[in-house]
Design a protein around this nucleic acid. Structure first.
Ligand SMILES: [Zn+2]
Ligand SMILES: [Zn+2]
Ligand SMILES: [Zn+2]
Ligand SMILES: [Zn+2]
Lengths: 436, 436
DNA sequence: ACCGGTGCCGGG
DNA sequence: CCCGGCACCGGT
């Protein structure tokens, strides 16, 4: 018979029992929310066991490695954000991409190698691959939105690589995502993206939103009370760089510079000046070091970046409830947290984090975050797919995810790519309206 | 320090211990497979608890109802195949479809209700909705394929209902599926389906009405049925019914009757004659009654249907290891099992199951199975999506699922729909190659 | 009441 | 080693 234990499943959460989770110091700061909820003694499996979906007793074996890891003689890391990778799929996909790339390269080489690297600062160290996708035969109707007078708005600086030639698409999937890249094998620098699946029929026009009055169901518990308008696919793409000028305003921003007030999709931007001082004094900035993929940020780095975000970016898109504090935000939605870190890293420079380090981290984070976000746009939708959703209903789970996407859309990666794919913008739009 | 509590988490699902699983009579027939390992005392949650994803102790509470069910005063059913439904999504989607349908109906009513019921036997009792999809602008190269000289191949009587006019379509989603329909509330007779997302392009020809017969409009619980015509990327269009002639060959079949051997996408078909007698004597045909959605089949019905499949359909597409026996096949992949039942029901007629009953069951199964299959095409892919799949790699889990899809593709529903969407065929193709 | 997410069994 | 599933916790 089985003597499966599990006796330990401790269950009981909060309450008196506290554990150390990952031993890091934790100033629980009785945040206003509910009653204090000490950390999370949640039992979690180590990364290796998660990958193998195997039973893990790391939680018991105190600070020691879990049985499996010990047996394998590998390091037993505990990371509550770790997500397993689908090895087989990833391998197959990489193979295919590789093959495809090689083929294309051998076949004809004049692939445009946009050289204009406006950014005078420093050349992207790691770099994130740039694959353009632009199957939709029409450009986004930037119309309604004033043609951002501030941005150079170059058509397509891209070093494009149209994808999939003689491929047969099983179905028009908008999927994309390259998973969080945990760090299984050595890690491959490139790591493509390829968002859409080419469909082999003309497809006249793709229906632009056109609000459907259906606004049934839920709503965001907080935040975002913008008037609706985004009636287009949030058009605009554009490259990055060169926007030093207008402070932190990212490329995607479509400022209605029609002379009036700053606007973001019809929403007034609360004057970048009003830096919400935020009661950071209350330890809301406290946090433990965290890592995504290969990148790890120390408590101090996180703190300083968060403050940077609050001061420089948040004012422009005050949708995140920064008062929740770093730790809580991270718990609620790691992706949001990382998007914030990512955004802050854009041009950060401080004693704690040099510009160079920031840049390095920024690029390192790029692919991971990109994948995570891409996954976000597909994952939740697919989850609900079973019951079929016309307009995916975007239960992109919490609003947090939406926030992350919006932030990302506003301040996309400096190395272009991804956001260049208009589908992303559409998604952004959809999400935006989903929030209301 | 945590004083884990709970008395009740007792756990232990042990092995040797036998339990009653689902109280149904069970002829466990020591299946040959391995040694020992009688049935599956696996601890399973009751349907209600599954739906609510709540802890269920039905396994312990012997034959009695689980604690939760008892508290709620509802029947505590145990069904290992039960899959929870995504209520919110389903509701939203139904609402939308309803609205859409109503709108369309009010806008212009000339709904086409072709009457010609070729099948002289009996009128389809339940019927499944029929939504035509026909976006591919090109006709299939029926050329190379010999037009199975047996089929009359009438042009297109189509009784269609174009769908979704000014719809949103955030992205070209091929999704579909309306989940297994467990049997939530009272249950609505209509229960539409809407396979694809209509990309509102013109769509060339639309089968004009003709008909006579019942031109019911408005809220008709059930809708027209009609022969279908799908043309797919794989080429081939075709009508259903009337293929009695060429035995059981379904419409999607593309026989390369170039004089050589039978082929199915390049794979040789082992001569329909060779009816693999199969050692049914060994109790491989043993099984317990099973149900999918609202449909339930008795042991005898299953047995006779399975034999029918083995004798008439299997020879044409010998991809299923029928020697595994009914029970095992069902365990390995319920969908495969149901696809087999579904296919066999097509034209079944026996003492155990009259033609009428078969038809009735066939139509009842249609939507459930359709949903399940649709889900299959999206679900697994999405699962893998995280690691990004260009051509979804189709790890549609086990081969069994693929088999189910192939069978379904070969012998699509008599009432058209869904398979009318060429993407399905593409999928079929893709899957096929996935198998090798 | 729902359900996202996580642990991890069982099978390939 | 991989992973589909499935039980269930914890948050809404
Ligand atoms: Zn472990
Ligand atoms: Zn470990
Ligand atoms: Zn229960
Ligand atoms: Zn119950």
């Amino acid at each position: 018979m089985n003597q499966q234990n599990e006796l330990e499943n401790t269950a009981s959460k909060q309450k008196g029992t506290r554990k150390r989770q990952n031993n890091h110091a934790e100033s629980n700061s009785a945040n206003n929310h509910k009653v204090s909820s000490s950390k999370a003694p949640k039992k979690i499996a180590c990364t290796e066991c998660r990958q193998q979906k195997a039973k893990c007793d790391a939680h018991d074996k105190a600070p020691g490695p879990c049985t499996r890891c010990m047996k394998r003689g590998i390091e037993c890391r505990l990371n509550s954000d770790y997500k397993r990778t689908f090895k087989r799929a990833k391998i197959a996909q990489m193979e295919k991409e590789y093959e495809q790339m090689r083929m294309k390269l051998a076949y004809q080489n004049s692939p445009v190698v946009q050289s204009q690297n406006i950014n005078p600062s420093n050349p992207p160290p790691i770099s994130s691959t740039v694959i353009q996708r632009n199957n939709s035969p029409f450009l986004p109707p930037i119309s309604a939105l004033s043609p951002s007078a501030t941005i150079p708005a170059q058509p397509v600086p891209v070093g494009s690589v149209q994808s999939i030639p003689p491929y047969f698409s099983p179905s028009p999937f908008p999927s994309s995502a390259t998973r969080m890249i945990p760090s299984p094998p050595p890690h491959h620098p490139p790591m493509r993206h390829t968002p859409l699946k080419e469909e082999f029929y003309p497809i006249p026009s793709n229906g632009p939103p056109s609000s459907s009055a259906n606004s049934q169901f839920s709503s965001s518990p907080q935040i975002l009370k913008s008037p609706q308008l985004y009636q287009t696919a949030l058009g605009k793409v554009s490259e990055d760089k060169s926007l030093f000028s207008n402070q932190y305003l990212g490329p995607s921003v479509v400022r209605v510079a029609t002379g009036e007030q700053q606007t973001f999709f019809g929403k007034k931007i609360p004057e970048p000046r009003s830096v919400p001082k935020l009661n950071l004094e209350e330890g809301l900035a406290e946090c433990s070091p965290k890592s995504l993929g290969e990148v790890t940020l120390s408590s101090d780095q996180i703190r300083v970046l968060f403050l940077d975000f609050v001061a420089c970016y948040h004012p422009m898109l005050p949708i995140v409830d920064i008062n929740k504090g770093i730790e809580r935000l991270h718990r609620l939605c790691p992706i949001l947290f990382w998007t914030i870190m990512f955004t802050a890293l854009r041009r950060h420079k401080s004693a704690t984090l040099s510009k160079f380090e920031a840049q390095k981290l920024y690029f390192s984070l790029t692919s991971s975050l990109k994948s995570a976000l891409a996954e976000l746009t597909i994952s939740p939708i697919t989850r609900y797919a079973p019951s079929e959703l016309e307009e995916p209903i975007l239960n992109v789970s919490s609003v947090y995810s939406v926030q992350a996407l919006l932030i990302y859309t506003l301040w996309p990666p400096l190395t272009s790519s991804l956001s260049a794919d208009n589908s992303w913008n559409s998604i952004g739009l959809a999400l935006f309206q989903a929030i209301h």
